[in-house]
Every structure is written in C-alpha cells, then in structure tokens.
C-alpha cells in the first residue's frame, strides 16, 4: 500500500468575478514509504497549493488524499511541513523555536529537553541554542526550521522550496544534510523546488508539473545510488532532458500573449 496516495486532486479558486482559476487539475500520484519525491515546476504552477492541500492547510475542491490508507482531512501529526522562509518565530530563541511543536502537544519538560537536544546536535546547532533567529545566517535558520519540524517525528516531511533563499554553497551543504537526514530517519519526503538540478540530485522520483492549471506532466525515475555526485553524466543528461521538457510546457502559456 502506498504511504501517501493523491487521488484525482482538483483545486479551483473562485476569483470573485465569476470566472474561476483552476490551480490544480487531476493530480494523481502514489508515493511509497521512504521515497524522496521532488516536485518540480515553474512559478505559478500550483506547487505550493499542492503542498498546502497535502498538509491540510487548504481543502481541495475535489479528490482525496490517503495516508496509510486513511483519508487525510486536516492537519495531521504524521505530516510535517518546512516552509520556504523558515518562518521561525522571531521572539523565540533557537531552543524555544524547536520546542514549539512539543509545547503544542503538551509534552513533559524532560521529553522536551531530550528531544530538542537531540535535534540541536543532529542539525549542527550546538552553541546557538540561545540565539534569536535574526542573529543567524539563512542556512542556520533553515536548519532550525528543519529541526522544529523533525522534533515531532512526522512520518512524511513536506518541504516548500526550503533552500530557495540560500546562496549556492550553503544550498549544496543543506541538500546533503537533507539527504542524510532522510536516509537515517527513513522518512517519506515531498520536496518542492523550481531548481531542476536540485530536484534530480535529491529525488528518487521527479514529478514535473505543468503550469496553469497545474497538472502532472512527466514523472522521472532516478535509480542512481547514494551518495550521488553532482557531476555524474547520467544525472546531467537527465537534468538537460527535464529542462527541455520544462521549456516546452512553459511556452504553452497563453495568458501572457495579450501583453506582449
């Protein structure tokens, strides 16, 4: 049985003028336990909408989502989300930010200490426990964001372009850390990105979404072993292939013609 099953998901936003905007069209996908799914697409293709639907933040117009065969109808403890800009609470220190989910679940003080310490160590945040978010670099902040989600031990991790705002080198370091984390903790990952190389380097499958409305255009399997090399020729060839396909589907856009 699939870990997560998306069945014919449609999302339509009413825009008030009578015409509706279809953000997602018939998204149908089964994700096995322990998979690393990269969801790739140009901006405006509904990637974030899809993530918000899976995490229970938004309600789809039609279709169903199953986690371990049980329908998901709202926020679930077994699904964790890491947001694009890390969204750390500026009034909480690193430790208190990571603690947030445990606090919400009313865990004991001892539990909190043990779990938070574990993830502070795992995410290389030792020595920064009492800093506030604005005292940290972008990479550090995203590590805290990851730790905050991981501490609740969700089975499925959703990530919405978590590395989008980082510089190239920090980005690569964090990509490797995310892969390590995934392999060690045996999570099922759904990772949203608009960077083709990132999608291919990380994923076991790359799901390519086409824009307006967001549909699954192609699915690419990546069977390469870990650790992967970024300069691997098979990988580079695939990146090029996906990039070409991305260019083709992007040119389908008709809504810009009126302005050009």
């Amino acid at each position: 049985m699939a870990k997560i099953s998306l069945q014919h998901i449609n999302m339509i936003y009413p825009d008030g003028t009578g015409t509706n905007t279809q953000a997602l069209k018939d998204i149908h996908l089964n994700i096995e336990e322990g998979e690393f799914i990269s969801v790739l697409g140009a901006s405006g293709c509904g990637k974030s909408t899809l993530l918000e639907i899976i995490s229970g933040l938004l309600k789809q117009t039609s279709g169903q989502i199953f986690l371990d065969g049980k329908e998901v109808t709202g926020a679930s403890k077994n699904i964790g989300v890491v947001f694009q800009d890390s969204s750390l609470f500026p009034w909480r220190t690193v430790r208190r930010n990571i603690e947030f989910g445990l606090e919400i679940n009313r865990r004991s003080k001892a539990d909190k200490k043990i779990l938070v310490d574990k993830y502070i160590k795992m995410m290389n945040l030792t020595g920064f426990e009492d800093r506030y978010p604005q005292q940290l670099s972008g990479g550090m902040r995203q590590r805290v964001g990851l730790a905050r989600t991981m501490v609740n031990d969700p089975e499925v991790l959703l990530m919405d372009e978590p590395l989008g705002a980082l510089d190239y080198l920090t980005r690569q370091t964090l990509q490797d850390e995310i892969v390590d984390l995934w392999r060690r903790e045996n999570k099922t990952m759904i990772f949203i990105t608009h960077d083709v190389a990132e999608a291919v380097y990380l994923g076991t499958r790359v799901v390519l979404l086409s824009p307006r409305p967001g549909r699954i255009s192609n699915i690419y399997e990546i069977q390469e072993d870990r650790p992967r090399r970024r300069t691997d020729l098979v990988q580079l060839a695939l990146i090029e292939k996906i990039q070409q396909r991305l260019n083709e589907i992007s040119s389908d856009r008709e809504d810009i013609r009126a302005y050009i």
Binding site: K77, F83, N105, R148
Partner: peptide, 12 residues
C-alpha cells in the same frame, strides 16, 4: 506563515 506553522502543528 506563522499561523500556518501553528496550524500544521495542530495548535488549538
């Protein structure tokens, strides 16, 4: 986004 974080954590 802070409210989204709270919601996915299941805050009351």
């Amino acid at each position: 986004n802070f409210l989204k974080v709270a919601k996915v954590f299941g805050a009351t």
